[in-house]
């Protein structure tokens, strides 16, 4: 589904990642962990084409990401649901429209998708907030809204960057359950998080592999977690 081959990435200053190779198989559940600033977000960005590797190759859906033109990148993003760390929305549109935004921009018939949207909002527990504007939402609500927006196109792959970063333990458990459910539906999931308690909680419920970034490279974390 997504395959990184000897991928390196350096900012102006120096290398952040080097020789990273990993393959996300369809239906797998991965955690990506490591200290702050180790390059978790960068690695996710490489996966959805927001960054182009400075060396090596990123393949998504059997296509080399660096050879895609801008429209092809956009089309690829419709197949990848991304929950960003700083979930950004269109602040002038009500929540329901924000969650449906991927459908809107891809020209889907909104009338036909309305029941799906209602169901999805119910699933993330935001039905009553449908008309609220994003700035009025709490941190947890924003995270759930971002997750709902990420999955509304029924993507094959879900990338989540610190999805539980701004929420309390209970809310993070709830978000994790949502992600686990999506994985059970066959979606590939990759969560970047430094929340070890969350990772442990997940490992008890799913066959999750934990990838750790240390020393600019990616290692499969052992059973110590």
């Amino acid at each position: 589904m997504i395959e990184l081959e000897h991928v390196g990435y350096s900012y102006g200053g120096g290398a952040l990642l080097s020789d990273v190779s990993v393959r996300l198989a369809p239906g797998s559940f991965h955690f990506l962990t490591g200290p702050s600033g180790a390059g978790k977000t960068t690695l996710l960005k490489l996966c959805y084409g927001a960054l182009v590797p400075t060396s090596g190759r990123v393949q998504a859906f059997d296509l080399d990401v660096s050879t895609l033109d801008r429209d092809q990148v956009a089309m690829m993003r419709r197949r990848i649901g991304v929950v960003h760390q700083d979930c950004r929305f269109l602040d002038h549109l009500p929540l329901a429209d924000n969650i449906a935004l991927p459908l809107t921009v891809s020209g889907r018939d909104m009338g036909a998708e309305n029941s799906n949207l209602g169901e999805l909002m119910n699933w993330v527990g935001l039905s009553e907030r449908a008309d609220a504007l994003p700035p009025e939402l709490s941190g947890g609500e924003r995270q759930r809204a971002a997750l709902a927006r990420a999955v509304i196109m029924s993507p094959d792959l879900i990338l989540a960057d610190e999805p539980t970063g701004n929420v309390d333990w209970e809310m993070s458990q709830r978000l994790l359950r949502l992600l686990l459910e999506l994985n059970k539906m066959g979606k590939t999931v990759l969560i970047a998080s430094h929340d070890l308690a969350l990772i442990r909680a997940a490992k008890s419920q799913v066959q999750a592999r934990v990838l750790r970034i240390s020393d600019k490279t990616l290692q499969l974390a052992g059973a110590d977690l």
């Binding site: 956009a74 993003r77 602040d91 921009v105 927006r149």
Partner: peptide, 15 residues
């Protein structure tokens, strides 16, 4: 910000 969000959810440049 609007443009960034649109781009991230898969909007084409044309759109």
């Amino acid at each position: 910000q609007v443009i960034q969000v649109l781009r991230l959810v898969g909007a084409l440049d044309r759109y």
